[in-house]
Amino acid sequence: MKMKFVWSIALLVAATTMMNIAECWEEKPANIASGVIRVGGKVLCQDCTDGWNEWVSGNKPIEGCIVSVTCMDDRKRIVYYGSDKTDKSGEFEVTIDEYIHGKKINPETCFTRLVSSPDPICNIPTDFAGGKTGVKLGRPTIMYRDIIKHVLGPFYYTTPMCDEPDTNDNDNDNENYGNSYANEKNY
């Protein structure tokens, strides 16, 4: 008798847990084709050691840079992380399924940022267009059928000679030294 009671309680707890999980899951409607979210842009090198005209219009694309896209859920947990390398013209494009593990991705909870540059000279990320700290996706640039596209950037890397040193005298920044994303976003 006691064993039946224990099994009954265990089954009740398991059923309740499964129902709670099922309520949190937003299933993809069966009659709608799965769409995709595309995030694209360009990565360029901007060298401040050149003259003004070369600095303004002399941006060159960097091949092989890694750009990442991270999407969060409502609880600030990562539900998607992807990256892409830039091609010869410095362009990247990350494709995200609209539904991941049964949950719909909200593009407004995604951000894109620079990760690395293979260029031995132009490898310091800048915050022009938010490439260093990350850019949240806003309104899509293109919407057509099941495709939503966000065109960002361009993002820029620069040379070590052009990197502006951090002159902030705030003592509270010691714990996040070198982590500009944490400083900017207060994580």
Results as ranks from 00 to 15, higher is better:
D173R: 01
N31K: 00
K185C: 12
G64H: 06
N172K: 12
K60V: 15
G58M: 07
S117D: 07
M3K: 14
C71Q: 06
F111H: 09
I37V: 11
F155S: 08
M19T: 14
T109K: 06
V151Y: 05
P165L: 09
I105Y: 05
D119C: 06
Y81V: 09
F5C: 05
R113K: 13
T17Y: 13
L44C: 09
C110D: 06
I78V: 14
D169V: 04
G138H: 12
G102L: 02
K149S: 03
T95A: 01
A14D: 05
I148E: 09
I100W: 02
M143W: 02
I100N: 09
S57V: 07
I21F: 10
V135W: 10
V6M: 11
T95K: 05
E93V: 10
M19H: 10
Q46T: 08
Y177N: 10
W52C: 03
D166C: 10
P118E: 09
R145W: 02
H101S: 06
V43G: 07
D171I: 11
I37P: 03
G153I: 03
Q46Y: 09
A33C: 10
W7R: 13
C45A: 14
R75Q: 13
D146G: 03
P29Q: 08
G131V: 06
V56I: 15
N31H: 08
K60Y: 10
E23T: 00
S8K: 05
P120W: 00
V6P: 00
V79D: 04
C71Y: 01
D47W: 03
V6T: 10
D97I: 05
V43R: 07
L12A: 15
S180L: 13
M72D: 07
V6S: 06
K136D: 10
A22Q: 13
E54Y: 01
I148C: 01
M1C: 12
K42L: 12
V94M: 04
N59W: 07
S8H: 08
V67N: 02
C122G: 08
R139A: 11
D163V: 04
S83Q: 11
H101P: 00
G64C: 03
P118F: 09
C65G: 03
D163A: 15
E91K: 11
G153T: 06
K4Y: 10
N172I: 09
R38M: 03
M72Y: 11
G178Y: 00
